[in-house]
């Protein structure tokens, strides 16, 4: 059976992408806001729950502290997940493009 977090939700996707560089929780939210051009704005409980969930599955891990805040970074396993999702999404994108070609013919 598929992993229960797959396919990745928009929230999980953005968090994993943001954590390719080490960041603390609030900075993750800020980075996602700019990455998504303001369209994805995570709330506190959602961010906390997602960080919990992702680190429970070993896709991200704490790598240090900045004051009281914990800093996280994606793990190798997490990067593998992103790679898989990238392939899945590029396939879907290629289907979109095929559709365009057919319409032109």
């Amino acid at each position: 059976m598929k992993h229960k977090l797959l396919p990745l939700s928009e929230t999980m996707h953005y968090i994993l992408l943001a954590l390719r560089e080490p960041l603390h929780g609030y900075a993750v939210m800020q980075k996602i806001e700019s990455m998504s051009e303001g369209s994805v704005s995570l709330a506190a409980g959602t961010l906390y729950g997602a960080i919990e969930n992702l680190s429970k599955h070993g896709w991200i891990e704490p790598v240090g502290h900045s004051g009281r805040r914990k800093i996280y970074k994606i793990t190798e396993e997490g990067s593998t997940i992103l790679k898989m999702e990238q392939e899945r999404l590029s396939h879907i994108l290629s289907l979109y493009e095929e559709g365009d070609v057919n319409e032109e013919v």
């Binding site: 939700s9 995570l42 709330a43």
Partner: peptide, 15 residues
């Protein structure tokens, strides 16, 4: 204006 603690369906469901 940003008064929710959950911003997606997954976390609201977990709640």
């Amino acid at each position: 204006g940003q008064n929710e603690i959950f911003s997606d369906r997954q976390s609201q469901g977990n709640y």
